[in-house]
């Protein structure tokens, strides 16, 4: 309940305040969001499996976001930024989906 509230609060803040992101950081924002989503899905699954740990969650969240941004940044410098972002999205997407599937199995037993 509280996590959901926190999420809604964050989205509302972002949409209402429309904080300006420095132009140099703009390409990394969507990737960071996807990486963060991956951490969140992992956390939900861990919670359902009874092995959730806040410290792991916070650390994995921050490191996921940073690593994803760093990978894309490196890719940009090497001239393969677009392809690397696609790769990151694909890998994280697979993880998100399989974690979502595990969550679904836990919740609905189906």
């Amino acid at each position: 309940m509280i996590p959901a509230l926190a999420l809604v609060l964050g989205v509302t803040l972002g949409l209402v305040l429309e904080p300006t992101v420095p132009a140099a950081l703009q390409p990394y924002l969507p990737i960071a969001v996807v990486a963060a989503l991956d951490a969140v899905f992992g956390a939900v699954r861990a919670q359902l499996e009874g092995i959730f740990d806040d410290r792991v969650f916070v650390v994995s969240f921050v490191s996921n976001v940073l690593v994803a941004a760093l990978v894309v940044f490196l890719g940009d410098q090497l001239g393969v930024g677009g392809q690397l972002s696609t790769g990151v999205v694909v890998v994280l997407g697979i993880r998100i989906f399989s974690n979502a599937a595990a969550i679904r199995r836990r919740v609905f037993h189906a």
Binding site: A6, L7, G10, V11, L13, G14, A36, V40
Partner: peptide, 9 residues
């Protein structure tokens, strides 16, 4: 989580 929401928004 607030940070994630902020990022997404």
């Amino acid at each position: 989580l607030v940070a994630l929401g902020l990022l997404t928004g």
